[in-house]
């Protein structure tokens, strides 16, 4: 079944201190489930904004975004309900332990077996023995692995990752990247990530460079 995100000639700008800043203009791109896409580029190019638009978090100032799930056109809210996120700062809830954080999305959807599924995902990411530990008791890499498990547990159609290895060292970045790509392949979801890391970008099926307001295939 077709699950896609189509960006058609989108432009985006914002206003700050009385000035209008244009990030990009007339970009077009199609993102498909089952594929991985990396967006690279210099700081301030608008990578995070492009990711937000693709995730349906904000509307572009020009152009259109089309979301298709199971062959049907859906709105941004429905898209978000079928998406997951992985953040640079991990953003685990400090008051919940590891298993609580992983189970959280399923509990919010009213799933009774949330904790069972969370336990199996913790095992999958190699942290079954840290289930009862709070985020401040875990290292950065462990927190990000839990964040990955949390993002995938609801079987989303798309995962959006904003600098997922930005706060991690090289070795930890690799293991987190292995986890992310492995889970994406296993679940068949589309993985869209913004990254500064060239090795990470090279692991994606497609790598696009956003620079000077234009999107082009990355070298």
């Amino acid at each position: 079944m077709q699950n896609t995100i189509e960006l058609q000639s989108i432009s985006h700008d914002f206003e700050t201190a009385g000035q209008r800043i244009s990030l990009f203009c007339a970009l077009s791109c199609t993102i498909r489930a089952g594929e991985s896409l990396a967006i690279v580029g210099p700081s301030g190019a608008g990578k995070s904004s492009l990711l937000s638009i693709a995730a349906g978090l904000e509307a572009p100032t020009g152009g259109t975004v089309r979301f298709t799930l199971d062959g049907k056109s859906v709105d941004a809210l429905t898209m978000r309900a079928n998406s997951g996120f992985i953040f640079q700062q991990f953003h685990l809830l400090p008051e919940l332990d590891a298993i609580g954080n992983v189970a959280l999305p399923l509990r919010l959807k009213g799933k009774r077996d949330a904790f069972d599924l969370a336990a199996s995902w913790l095992d999958k990411v190699g942290l079954a023995d840290r289930a009862r530990h709070r985020p401040h008791q875990l290292s950065g890499g462990e927190q990000q692995r839990i964040a990955v498990a949390r993002a995938f547990i609801t079987a989303p159609r798309f995962i959006f990752a904003d600098e997922p290895t930005g706060n991690l060292d090289m070795h930890t970045s690799e293991s987190v990247a292995d986890l992310m790509f492995g889970c994406a392949r296993e679940t068949g979801c589309g993985l869209v990530m913004v990254t500064h890391s060239r090795p990470l970008a090279m692991r994606a099926d497609t790598s696009l460079l956003l620079a000077a307001g234009r999107l082009a295939a990355a070298a």
């Binding site: 809210l77 978000r80 309900a81 079928n82 998406s83 997951g84 959280l104 999305p105 949390r150 989303p156």
Partner: peptide, 16 residues
């Protein structure tokens, strides 16, 4: 705000 932003990342509607 922090908590609800994270809930939103799971697709939880604002209403909930």
């Amino acid at each position: 705000r922090y908590r609800h932003a994270i809930y939103a990342s799971f697709g939880t509607p604002m209403r909930i």
